[in-house]
Nucleic acid binder design. Sequence first.
DNA 1: CTAATTTGACCGTG
DNA 2: CACGGTCAAATTAG
Length: 247
Amino acid sequence: MDHKRVVYELTQGKEFAEQLKIHLNNPSSSQETQEILIHNILNSYENSLSLLTNHVLTTNGSNDEPHFHGKKGIIRKMESQAPFSESPCSEDSDPEFKDLDPNDFGAKRKRNGSIEKWKKQVKVRGDMEFEEALDDGYSWKKYGQKDILGAKHPRGYYRCTYRQLQGCLATKQVQRTNEDPNIFNMTYQGTHTCHPATATDTSPTLPLPSSSSPPPEIQHPPPQNQLLGSPKILQTDALMMVTKHLP
DNA sequence: CTAATTTGACCGTG
DNA sequence: CACGGTCAAATTAG
Protein backbone atom coordinates (compact mmCIF):
# COMPACT_ATOMS: atom_id res chain seq x y z
CA MET A 1 0.00 0.00 0.00
CA ASP A 2 0.99 3.51 0.60
CA HIS A 3 2.87 2.30 3.53
CA LYS A 4 5.52 0.91 1.36
CA ARG A 5 5.86 4.05 -0.56
CA VAL A 6 6.15 6.11 2.56
CA VAL A 7 8.90 3.90 3.77
CA TYR A 8 10.53 4.17 0.43
CA GLU A 9 10.34 7.92 0.44
CA LEU A 10 11.72 8.20 3.91
CA THR A 11 14.50 5.82 3.15
CA GLN A 12 15.48 7.88 0.21
CA GLY A 13 15.42 10.99 2.28
CA LYS A 14 17.68 9.36 4.76
CA GLU A 15 20.10 8.39 2.09
CA PHE A 16 20.14 11.86 0.74
CA ALA A 17 20.79 13.23 4.17
CA GLU A 18 23.67 10.87 4.58
CA GLN A 19 25.07 11.97 1.29
CA LEU A 20 24.71 15.53 2.32
CA LYS A 21 26.61 14.83 5.47
CA ILE A 22 29.43 13.40 3.46
CA HIS A 23 29.41 16.30 1.11
CA LEU A 24 29.51 18.78 3.90
CA ASN A 25 32.71 17.28 5.13
CA ASN A 26 34.16 17.23 1.73
CA PRO A 27 35.71 20.53 0.74
CA SER A 28 35.62 19.71 -2.92
CA SER A 29 31.91 19.33 -2.90
CA SER A 30 30.15 21.95 -4.90
CA GLN A 31 27.49 24.01 -3.38
CA GLU A 32 25.19 23.04 -6.15
CA THR A 33 25.43 19.43 -5.23
CA GLN A 34 24.56 20.24 -1.70
CA GLU A 35 21.59 22.24 -2.71
CA ILE A 36 20.38 19.44 -4.85
CA LEU A 37 20.68 17.09 -1.96
CA ILE A 38 18.73 19.43 0.23
CA HIS A 39 16.12 19.66 -2.41
CA ASN A 40 16.01 15.90 -2.47
CA ILE A 41 15.53 15.70 1.23
CA LEU A 42 12.76 18.22 1.21
CA ASN A 43 11.07 16.38 -1.55
CA SER A 44 11.20 13.22 0.43
CA TYR A 45 9.50 14.88 3.34
CA GLU A 46 6.95 16.44 1.15
CA ASN A 47 6.13 13.23 -0.58
CA SER A 48 5.94 11.33 2.63
CA LEU A 49 3.62 13.83 4.12
CA SER A 50 1.37 13.81 1.15
CA LEU A 51 1.19 10.10 1.23
CA LEU A 52 0.29 10.11 4.87
CA THR A 53 -2.20 12.87 4.54
CA ASN A 54 -4.08 11.44 1.67
CA HIS A 55 -4.27 7.93 2.83
CA VAL A 56 -8.01 8.16 2.89
CA LEU A 57 -8.60 8.87 -0.71
CA THR A 58 -8.50 7.12 -3.98
CA THR A 59 -6.14 4.35 -4.05
CA ASN A 60 -4.39 4.09 -7.23
CA GLY A 61 -2.13 2.06 -5.18
CA SER A 62 -0.16 0.17 -7.68
CA ASN A 63 3.13 1.78 -8.12
CA ASP A 64 6.22 -0.09 -8.48
CA GLU A 65 9.00 2.26 -8.81
CA PRO A 66 12.18 0.66 -9.71
CA HIS A 67 14.49 0.81 -6.80
CA PHE A 68 16.97 3.41 -7.42
CA HIS A 69 19.68 3.57 -5.02
CA GLY A 70 21.53 6.58 -4.06
CA LYS A 71 22.19 8.06 -7.37
CA LYS A 72 23.75 11.29 -6.59
CA GLY A 73 22.74 14.46 -8.16
CA ILE A 74 19.26 13.53 -9.02
CA ILE A 75 16.11 14.67 -7.59
CA ARG A 76 13.21 12.56 -8.10
CA LYS A 77 9.81 13.36 -7.14
CA MET A 78 6.93 11.17 -7.66
CA GLU A 79 3.40 11.28 -6.72
CA SER A 80 0.55 9.35 -7.98
CA GLN A 81 -2.65 10.80 -9.06
CA ALA A 82 -5.87 9.29 -9.99
CA PRO A 83 -6.97 11.14 -13.04
CA PHE A 84 -10.61 10.99 -12.28
CA SER A 85 -10.80 11.67 -8.65
CA GLU A 86 -10.03 15.12 -7.61
CA SER A 87 -9.27 15.35 -4.02
CA PRO A 88 -10.32 18.52 -2.32
CA CYS A 89 -7.16 18.55 -0.37
CA SER A 90 -4.49 19.10 -2.85
CA GLU A 91 -1.45 17.25 -1.92
CA ASP A 92 1.05 18.90 -4.04
CA SER A 93 1.93 22.45 -3.70
CA ASP A 94 4.29 22.36 -6.52
CA PRO A 95 5.02 25.45 -8.39
CA GLU A 96 6.87 23.46 -10.94
CA PHE A 97 4.14 21.12 -11.87
CA LYS A 98 1.16 22.40 -13.60
CA ASP A 99 -1.95 20.38 -13.48
CA LEU A 100 -2.06 17.44 -15.67
CA ASP A 101 -4.93 16.85 -17.92
CA PRO A 102 -7.68 15.23 -16.02
CA ASN A 103 -8.44 12.98 -18.91
CA ASP A 104 -6.69 9.82 -19.56
CA PHE A 105 -3.97 9.71 -22.03
CA GLY A 106 -3.38 7.58 -24.99
CA ALA A 107 -4.46 4.49 -23.24
CA LYS A 108 -7.78 3.30 -24.29
CA ARG A 109 -10.50 5.03 -22.54
CA LYS A 110 -11.30 2.97 -19.57
CA ARG A 111 -14.49 3.70 -17.88
CA ASN A 112 -13.84 4.39 -14.32
CA GLY A 113 -10.52 2.78 -14.59
CA SER A 114 -7.90 5.06 -13.30
CA ILE A 115 -4.72 4.85 -15.14
CA GLU A 116 -1.77 5.16 -12.97
CA LYS A 117 0.18 8.22 -13.51
CA TRP A 118 2.96 9.62 -11.52
CA LYS A 119 5.43 12.34 -11.80
CA LYS A 120 8.96 12.62 -11.01
CA GLN A 121 11.19 15.56 -11.05
CA VAL A 122 14.72 15.02 -12.01
CA LYS A 123 17.44 17.48 -11.55
CA VAL A 124 20.62 16.92 -13.34
CA ARG A 125 23.92 18.15 -12.27
CA GLY A 126 25.79 20.10 -14.80
CA ASP A 127 28.57 17.64 -14.94
CA MET A 128 26.37 14.67 -15.20
CA GLU A 129 25.37 13.01 -18.36
CA PHE A 130 21.84 13.73 -19.22
CA GLU A 131 21.07 10.31 -20.44
CA GLU A 132 22.44 8.70 -17.40
CA ALA A 133 20.42 10.82 -15.09
CA LEU A 134 17.25 10.62 -17.03
CA ASP A 135 17.51 7.00 -17.82
CA ASP A 136 15.42 4.97 -15.54
CA GLY A 137 16.60 1.67 -16.80
CA TYR A 138 13.89 1.10 -19.32
CA SER A 139 14.29 1.56 -22.98
CA TRP A 140 12.08 4.16 -24.43
CA LYS A 141 11.29 5.04 -27.94
CA LYS A 142 10.52 8.58 -28.75
CA TYR A 143 7.38 9.04 -30.71
CA GLY A 144 6.82 12.72 -30.63
CA GLN A 145 7.87 16.10 -29.51
CA LYS A 146 5.75 19.13 -29.02
CA ASP A 147 6.20 22.71 -28.14
CA ILE A 148 4.11 23.43 -25.15
CA LEU A 149 2.44 26.69 -24.61
CA GLY A 150 4.10 28.30 -21.69
CA ALA A 151 7.17 26.21 -21.93
CA LYS A 152 10.47 27.31 -23.15
CA HIS A 153 11.47 23.85 -24.13
CA PRO A 154 9.63 21.20 -26.05
CA ARG A 155 8.17 18.19 -24.41
CA GLY A 156 9.25 14.79 -25.51
CA TYR A 157 6.93 11.83 -25.71
CA TYR A 158 8.27 8.39 -25.17
CA ARG A 159 6.82 4.97 -25.01
CA CYS A 160 8.25 1.65 -24.13
CA THR A 161 10.26 0.12 -26.90
CA TYR A 162 8.51 -3.16 -26.40
CA ARG A 163 5.06 -1.80 -26.74
CA GLN A 164 4.36 -3.81 -29.84
CA LEU A 165 6.01 -6.98 -28.78
CA GLN A 166 4.67 -7.21 -25.33
CA GLY A 167 1.90 -4.77 -25.08
CA CYS A 168 3.78 -2.71 -22.61
CA LEU A 169 1.83 0.47 -22.38
CA ALA A 170 4.17 2.48 -20.28
CA THR A 171 4.68 6.00 -21.43
CA LYS A 172 6.58 8.95 -20.27
CA GLN A 173 6.89 12.60 -21.01
CA VAL A 174 9.97 14.58 -20.47
CA GLN A 175 9.80 18.26 -20.09
CA ARG A 176 12.60 20.58 -19.34
CA THR A 177 11.75 23.22 -16.84
CA ASN A 178 11.66 26.82 -17.83
CA GLU A 179 13.60 28.16 -14.94
CA ASP A 180 16.33 25.68 -14.51
CA PRO A 181 17.42 23.85 -17.60
CA ASN A 182 18.86 21.17 -15.42
CA ILE A 183 15.55 20.21 -13.98
CA PHE A 184 13.31 17.92 -15.90
CA ASN A 185 9.79 17.04 -15.14
CA MET A 186 8.87 13.64 -16.22
CA THR A 187 5.46 12.15 -16.14
CA TYR A 188 5.10 8.44 -16.21
CA GLN A 189 2.02 6.63 -17.20
CA GLY A 190 1.19 3.03 -16.96
CA THR A 191 3.32 0.30 -15.62
CA HIS A 192 5.95 -1.59 -17.44
CA THR A 193 4.87 -5.05 -18.18
CA CYS A 194 7.73 -5.71 -20.42
CA HIS A 195 10.65 -7.81 -19.61
CA PRO A 196 13.79 -6.68 -21.17
CA ALA A 197 14.95 -10.13 -21.94
CA THR A 198 12.22 -11.09 -24.30
CA ALA A 199 13.65 -9.41 -27.30
CA THR A 200 16.93 -11.13 -26.98
CA ASP A 201 16.32 -14.62 -25.82
CA THR A 202 18.38 -15.44 -22.78
CA SER A 203 15.84 -14.82 -20.16
CA PRO A 204 16.74 -16.47 -16.95
CA THR A 205 14.92 -13.77 -15.12
CA LEU A 206 11.93 -14.77 -13.23
CA PRO A 207 8.87 -15.99 -14.93
CA LEU A 208 6.01 -13.86 -13.86
CA PRO A 209 4.46 -14.99 -10.68
CA SER A 210 1.42 -17.04 -11.39
CA SER A 211 -1.08 -15.05 -13.33
CA SER A 212 -1.01 -11.75 -11.63
CA SER A 213 -4.02 -9.59 -12.04
CA PRO A 214 -3.89 -8.18 -15.51
CA PRO A 215 -5.80 -4.99 -15.16
CA PRO A 216 -4.67 -2.74 -12.43
CA GLU A 217 -1.81 -3.99 -10.43
CA ILE A 218 1.13 -5.26 -12.21
CA GLN A 219 4.12 -5.80 -10.13
CA HIS A 220 7.05 -6.60 -12.18
CA PRO A 221 10.66 -6.79 -11.37
CA PRO A 222 12.67 -3.65 -11.56
CA PRO A 223 14.90 -3.58 -14.54
CA GLN A 224 18.20 -3.75 -12.90
CA ASN A 225 19.73 -1.05 -15.01
CA GLN A 226 20.48 -3.21 -17.88
CA LEU A 227 21.52 -0.68 -20.39
CA LEU A 228 22.97 2.26 -18.73
CA GLY A 229 25.82 2.33 -21.09
CA SER A 230 23.58 2.38 -24.07
CA PRO A 231 24.52 4.77 -26.79
CA LYS A 232 21.04 6.03 -26.84
CA ILE A 233 20.99 9.71 -26.46
CA LEU A 234 18.09 11.62 -25.20
CA GLN A 235 17.62 14.34 -27.64
CA THR A 236 16.41 17.04 -25.48
CA ASP A 237 16.44 20.44 -26.88
CA ALA A 238 19.72 21.46 -25.44
CA LEU A 239 21.45 18.55 -26.97
CA MET A 240 19.67 19.16 -30.15
CA MET A 241 20.82 22.67 -30.30
CA VAL A 242 24.32 21.48 -30.06
CA THR A 243 24.04 18.82 -32.63
CA LYS A 244 21.94 20.76 -34.98
CA HIS A 245 24.23 23.64 -35.10
CA LEU A 246 26.78 21.68 -36.91
CA PRO A 247 26.85 22.05 -40.66
C1' DC B 1 20.70 -2.62 -43.94
C1' DT B 2 17.86 -2.06 -39.96
C1' DA B 3 16.27 0.64 -36.40
C1' DA B 4 15.48 4.87 -34.11
C1' DT B 5 14.46 10.04 -34.41
C1' DT B 6 12.57 13.87 -36.37
C1' DT B 7 8.96 16.68 -37.71
C1' DG B 8 4.74 18.34 -39.52
C1' DA B 9 0.12 16.76 -40.14
C1' DC B 10 -3.78 14.94 -37.98
C1' DC B 11 -7.26 14.58 -34.48
C1' DG B 12 -9.78 14.54 -30.05
C1' DT B 13 -10.83 17.59 -26.21
C1' DG B 14 -11.84 21.62 -23.37
C1' DC C 1 -10.41 26.78 -32.43
C1' DA C 2 -6.38 26.39 -29.77
C1' DC C 3 -3.57 22.84 -27.17
C1' DG C 4 -1.52 18.87 -26.48
C1' DG C 5 -0.98 14.08 -27.73
C1' DT C 6 -0.11 10.69 -31.53
C1' DC C 7 0.91 9.05 -36.23
C1' DA C 8 3.75 8.19 -39.93
C1' DA C 9 6.69 9.42 -43.70
C1' DA C 10 11.21 10.95 -44.28
C1' DT C 11 15.64 11.17 -42.51
C1' DT C 12 19.51 10.06 -39.90
C1' DA C 13 22.20 7.07 -36.88
C1' DG C 14 24.40 2.66 -35.91
